[in-house]
């Protein structure tokens, strides 16, 4: 009886990670660092500041492949994969009719939402760690490794940089948790999982576009996509915590509001599918 509260969560994780489509998403994400690594390896060395951040540094230190891969996948592929899983969460169960089965077991609706959201967060973390981990492995296989130069020009030990890289992955996962909360809310609004997935992905892209138009700079601080790239601060010396703290706060507010909306919707919804 001790592990009781976690049984449904474990079942949910098996459902999410056992699903072929989701495994394919993780596989596609893992190709990003592989492709970048091979491309950098076969092309002529020497970066001139063009292309994504850190690209030039990869040839000197394989660890930067992990950073580059996260930077490249963060604007679109990572949020898209979280949008797919979160959009599926409630709407998928509703469309297959399994939602009514769970509710008459009974699984409390609030508990179901929390379990679903927790598994979305875990998937986001797994997605970030896949990009990070594959980037690290491919980077270390193809390129030299050793002490790492930070953005501030300071050199730190490999172990120190590895720790920073792990924190970067965790920060990225926290940012993806914001996308997941939005997706979970959309997922309670419809019985069509594709609709919830598309709405989440579109909202993310709109937020990123608005975040690139200087004429609407005043609303930038309120967008959930604005603080995403603040993970770069972990590669400075000393590490400025302010922007990342704002980032975590922003996502925290988005998560709280969208989970409350999802809760209000799910607990008052007539399950007629």
């Amino acid at each position: 009886m001790r592990s009781q509260p976690l049984r449904l969560f474990r079942s949910e994780l098996r459902l999410v990670f056992g699903r072929r489509r989701n495994q394919a998403l993780l596989a596609v994400l893992s190709t990003a660092p592989i492709l970048i690594g091979i491309a950098v390896r076969v092309s002529s060395p020497g970066g001139d500041g063009e292309g994504p951040a850190f690209l030039g540094q990869i040839t000197q230190n394989g660890l930067f492949l992990a950073f580059t891969a996260l930077t490249v996948t963060l604007p679109f592929f990572l949020p898209l994969s979280v949008a797919v899983v979160s959009g599926e969460a409630i709407a998928g169960e509703a469309s297959s009719g399994t939602l009514r089965n769970l509710l008459v077991v009974p699984v409390d609706r609030t508990r179901l939402l929390l379990v679903k959201y927790a598994s979305i967060v875990v998937f986001g973390l797994a997605a970030a760690l896949v990009v990070w981990g594959v980037g690290l492995i491919v980077g270390l296989l193809l390129f030299p490794h050793g002490a790492v130069t930070l953005l501030s020009g300071t050199t730190v030990s490999f172990a120190n940089a590895l720790g920073r890289a792990l924190l970067v992955a965790l920060y990225v996962a926290a940012m993806l948790a914001g996308v997941g909360a939005i997706g979970a809310f959309f997922s309670t609004l419809t019985e069509v999982p594709m609709g919830a997935m598309a709405a989440t992905a579109v909202l993310t892209i709109i937020s990123e576009i608005v975040g690139a138009v200087p004429q609407v700079r005043v609303i930038w601080p309120y967008l959930f996509t604005t603080p995403w790239l603040a993970f770069g601060d972990l590669l400075r010396s000393p590490v400025p915590l302010h922007a990342m703290a704002i980032g975590l706060l922003t996502e925290g507010v988005y998560i709280a509001l969208f989970l409350l909306l999802a809760w209000a919707r799910l607990t008052t919804k007539d399950i007629s599918s």
Partner: peptide
């Protein structure tokens, strides 16, 4: 559905 609490 009402009996089982699926529909209010």
């Amino acid at each position: 559905r009402m009996l089982l609490g699926l529909v209010s």
